[in-house]
Nucleic acid binder design. Sequence first.
RNA 1: GCCGGGAUGGCGGAACUGGUAGACGCGCCGGACUCAAAAUCCGGUUUUGGAAACAAAGUGGGGGUUCGAUUCCCCCUCCCGGCACCA
Length: 816
Amino acid sequence: MSTDYDPETIELAAQKHWDDARSFEVSEDAGKDKFYCLTMFPYPSGKLHMGHVRVFTINDVIARYHRLQGKHVLQPMGWDAFGMPAENAAIQRGIPPAKWTYSNIEDMRRQLKRLGYAYDWTREVTTCRPEYYRWEQWLFTRMFRKGLVYRKNSIVNWDPVDQTVLANEQVIDGRGWRSDAIVERREIPQWFMKITDYAEELLNELDRMPGWPDSVKTMQRNWIGRSEGVELSFDVAGETEPLTVYTTRPDTLMGVTYMAVAAEHPLASKAAANDAKVAAFVEACKKTDAQEATLETMEKKGMPLGISAIHPLTGEEVPLWVANFVLMSYGTGAVMAVPGHDARDWEFAKKHGLPIKQVVAPADGSEIDINAAVYLDRGVLVNSGDYDGMDFDGAFNAIADHFEKSGRGRRKVNYRLRDWGISRQRYWGTPIPIIYCDDCGAVTVPEDQLPVILPEDVQVKGTGSPLKDMPEFVDVPCPKCSKPARRETDTFDTFVESSWYFARYACPDNDTAMLDDRAAYWTPVDQYTGGIEHAILHLLYSRFFQRVMRDEGLTDVSEPFTNLLTQGMVLKDGAKMSKAKGNTVDPQELILKFGADTVRLFMMFAAPPEQSLEWSDEGVQGSFRFLKRFWSTVVDHAAGGPVESLDMSVLNDAQKDLRRKTHQTIAKISDDIGRRHSFNTAVAASMELLNAINKLVDDSLAGRAVQRESLEAVVIMLSPIVPHICHALWQQLGHTSALIDQRWPVVDESALEIDRIEMVVQVNGKLRGRLLVAVDAPKQVIEDLAIADENVQRFIDGKNIRKVIVVPGRLVNIVV
RNA sequence: GCCGGGAUGGCGGAACUGGUAGACGCGCCGGACUCAAAAUCCGGUUUUGGAAACAAAGUGGGGGUUCGAUUCCCCCUCCCGGCACCA
């Protein structure tokens, strides 16, 4: 009596069981081995997309696997609810961002529940709720007190038509997305967090994070970009202030033939005042957006300022230029140019006919033509007066000493990392808890007046924040002197919310403290899963925030995420799924047609988690077909009734083979899921085992017992991936206790034993034959057998055997 | 431009530490069942030659190390992610 596989019925039944039993709600239990398993929380954009399904399924598989291992597992879910799309929706459809966001959350929560993820929903966190963001406002005021936040001018994309600041994403080919106007750079005052104070620690700790992928650690190292160099100053003719520059190549100092400053540099402004051409150039430089990729790929342009700098060693005059590739916000806004030994300087010198001087020669004494090609390697100094003949280190130290003695420079460690600008000129975000008073300046909102609540009933028009037009929000007394003052209308970068939510899941209901001892129990996150696109910004900001919370005494933990898994994107027809490209697949429709288990199975089977996944409708069919076969195999077997307990001494060869395959598969899947996170090969191994079970046609007591052992193992091992069908099949197999409370199967080493093994015979590395030999056969016997092989003889006949390589248990290679 | 990844049959992928290239699945071809179709089941499937045994070629391109390279090294091409205000 084989009932058909009916995904909807069995999935809803399994979900009801988990709900009724509150299977995934966890409390803090010091006696248990905790495992905190987390995904990057979603932005509530409206509907779940395949990228969500992929990352959540990966994490759910890991969470369920660890639960079966006996761990006390926390897997929470929440919403990264502030952000631009809510404002865009408000502009387009006239719905307030809050209403749009909360309704999206409702829809997406329902979809997540239908996919059967093992979440503790009692801990749900929503970042646009005051009970969440009040603590981030509170921490900001503590950071303000410590001097970890400050205000300075910085550059934004300015749309001169819409009169508004644009996000990088809203700049398309240098133009505003709505106005189509050419975007300009504009400086405005903004709040910054001093992440650079933690640069050294953030960098050094990467060496002690074995649970993170090397690629992510390398990207973070390069992003922080620690360099050792020298800061030195050039006098400028006719100026009292010297021009300070930083270089990692002081050994090339004698090769400086010009210098360059940014368009916003005071010396450029000064020259522009006297020279209309320079003024026009400086203006033109500002007519570009503020993205680094734009600056690095655009044509390098410059113009002489008619001002000279004085070379600090030779006293010679070098011309000062203004150049579009020098940025005011990087370093000092000025660079020394060594065209002989810097690629960008070399190209710029070639283009503008500036002199190129060789001051470093190859250490091996070979000749180079500096006018034909730039020389970047470290070598031996030439044309450098007293420094001639020195190597890189010798010259670095001699020149650094010279400047330190004369007080005109110093050795300096520099970081590429810049402080984190957190001000956004947008409405839908956490209000920055600052009040501006004419007398007291910028004052933080006192703790007893927090949270500063964002008004939710607003009209968003798309030209600046609606908060500016709300006197009831803006007009407040100064907390210090009580005089009339103005509230800050900028909001936090949404990365601030996502930099600490992982800790708040431990204690989302605490209204007297940001974190408590429940956070001490659960943090750090043991397994964190999310997109590779977050490899730098989100993960670095979170590492920074964790340390800020530590230094505030809120936690002892320094690193928030012990193990990191970065998953690839979901593609269709080779491109990322997106509405714009029209290549999306709606998870909802698939769940309706095939059930959640089929969708989960395909996601795990189609590609390893780190790689991008190519969507295939046929592949989904295949996954569904497998589940149907899985269902009927177990149901048909269970129809034969209960089985006797297994007596291993009476097994025949075929039964032994299946039992060996079963335990080999248990070992493989345990390793694939537990260590390698190689879910696709775990699924493949389950399929192989199921094929082997179906091949053993054997109704004897022993045969059924071996099959039963094998089927129970597959049902448990597949349950992290396809939990609903496994829940139902476990009941079919006659169990009264729920599968979710079982333990992972254990390998029986005795089942793995073998006495003979197949070895490959190669001649000159090419496969020529196979041998079946005893496991413990001595080397000489294997060698003789290999040489005696009929096909092998054809290839070694009449030739000289130079060497025979025996790799135990694998192969023999005969070199002739 | 800079930083990080990737490229293997018709397709998704496997080969974990330098040791049998193509596991598992999809698709396709053939067969069984059926009046027929779908579903299901069985067999085949890298390419070329061959009835087969077997042989030759083969992991983006070029070079190198090695008895042996998808795997290590050098150079190149293309694709993807990030580049600080998308999240």
